[in-house]
Amino acid sequence: MEILFAIAIGILSGSGVWLLLRPRTFQMIVGLALLSYAVNLFIFGMGRLAIGKAPIVAPGAADPALYADPLPQALVLTAIVIGFATTALLLVVLLVARGLTGTDHVDGRESQ
């Protein structure tokens, strides 16, 4: 499973970086979204992969070895929500820039 997980991160981030370097604003937004999936998965993976060990503790003394690492999960959870908010901000900034400059090129003008 680890191999699949790592390859998925690689493909998501590779696609994201490819799009990030493209000239159109929409490509950049999609690229950032893909890159944020990859980064979220990466951070989540730092807690190692565990199946069937959701960090929902049973009553009584909790043995940390029985549960997946909750810390990266908490970090990623807020990252997901903030990621949405910043994507929205970026989208609106790019839309406004397009209205002002008349182009959807990331530089605000068509390349020569």
């Binding site: 680890e2 191999i3 997980f5 790592a6 390859i7 991160i9 690689g10 493909i11 998501l12 981030s13 590779g14 696609s15 970086v17 490819w18 370097l21 493209r22 990859a38 990466f42 993976g45 730092m46 190692r48 992969l49």
Partner: peptide, 21 residues
């Protein structure tokens, strides 16, 4: 750009795999 993307993706995959194992 394709080369850069492959390097970044490959690097991140390798790094993830190294950590996960």
């Amino acid at each position: 750009d394709f080369v850069v993307a492959v390097f970044v993706g490959g690097g991140l995959a390798l790094l993830s795999f190294a950590v996960l194992t």
